[in-house]
């Protein structure tokens, strides 16, 4: 069964069409990045999936069912929402104990989950004194309580330091690839998830603009190198097996060789290069275009 299924989902807030006819699925054992600039509709989609927002039309299902109809939701889905909030006067452990009680989970789970996210030392400290990174870890501990097989995370890297982001990447990959969980993780920063995800869904202004495996989206169009030189370098490049296109006098677009190979060839041929740049991959270009548009709007 498909772990997460979004089918023709639409949701408006007044005149704002936050999510507009979005469909995609997430399978067990994979990490899917849900990417888009701020205001694209990521949070609204994920909150619809979790029964917090009622969609205007379409469906958002986990394990084939609406979240609100689940009898033991924490055992099926672990969620970390953007700016997850805690009562500042409560300790980390008490926060998890309350969830454990309400969900009827074993009383040992809070300490185990805190251990798993590396927060055991802060278990009895009040959340009011936590850094943003510690709060994100606590939120993740909450998602782990019921040992679910589906994880939904909204911008979980926000507020984490580089080491924390590194840790999170490894952890999400571990959940998907070692425990077979389905992981859906949103971000407005491509670089944060690029090294983690198997699949990518890109949304902008509520509409789905691109979806596919990471390989599909980075593969095509990628790999070309732009070379600037006043010398006649094209024949040598062709001889080395490259496909060369003269974009304008002095500017070549080279496929089949990477920047280092081109540099070595230039050295051998005693050719002076004034610029060598890898063209951005399709994913990066699409994403940057969208982000720029989002910021202009």
């Amino acid at each position: 069964m498909t772990a997460i299924e979004i089918r023709n989902l639409s949701k408006s807030f007044g005149a704002v069409r936050a999510v507009d006819d979005v469909s995609f699925t997430v399978e067990a054992g994979t990490v899917t990045g849900y990417l888009g600039p701020n205001g694209a509709g990521k949070t609204t989609t994920l909150r619809s999936l979790l029964g917090l927002v009622t969609p205007d039309s379409g469906e958002a299902l986990v394990n084939g069912r609406r979240y609100a109809s689940l009898d033991h939701p924490l055992n099926e889905v672990g969620a970390v929402l953007e700016a997850t909030s805690f009562h500042p006067g409560r300790t980390a452990r008490d926060h998890l104990r309350i969830m454990t009680t309400a969900a009827g989970l074993p009383a040992s789970r809070p300490d185990e989950a805190l251990d798993q996210v590396g927060l055991a030392d802060a278990a009895r400290k009040r959340v009011g004194g936590f850094s943003l990174g510690m709060r994100q870890r606590l939120a993740l501990a909450g998602a782990l309580l019921g040992q679910p097989k589906i994880f939904i995370l909204d911008e979980p890297a926000n507020g984490l330091d580089p080491a924390g982001i590194q840790w999170l990447r490894g952890f999400l990959r571990h959940l998907a690839h070692d425990t077979g969980a389905a992981v859906l993780v949103s971000s407005h920063v491509l670089a944060e998830v690029e090294q983690t995800v198997d699949n990518v869904v890109i949304i902008a202004k509520g509409r789905l603009v691109r979806q596919g495996t990471l390989a599909e989206l980075t593969g095509n169009g990628g790999g070309a190198v732009r070379v600037k030189t006043k010398d006649d370098f094209a024949p040598a490049l062709r001889a080395a097996g490259a496909e060369v296109e003269e974009v304008e006098p002095g500017l070549l677009r080279v496929k089949g060789l990477d920047a280092e190979e081109i540099g070595r060839l230039a050295l051998d041929q005693r050719v002076l290069l004034t610029e060598v740049t890898h063209e951005r991959s399709d994913l990066q270009s699409v994403f940057l275009e969208l982000t720029a548009e989002g910021e202009r709007a």
Binding site: L50, L52, A68, L74, T84, S85, A103
Partner: peptide
């Protein structure tokens, strides 16, 4: 009201969606 003040209502409804 503290559920709304500290936004803990989100976690409460995630744990108990009914």
């Amino acid at each position: 009201t503290s559920e709304y003040r500290y936004q803990t209502i989100t976690g409460t409804f995630l744990t108990t969606p009914k």
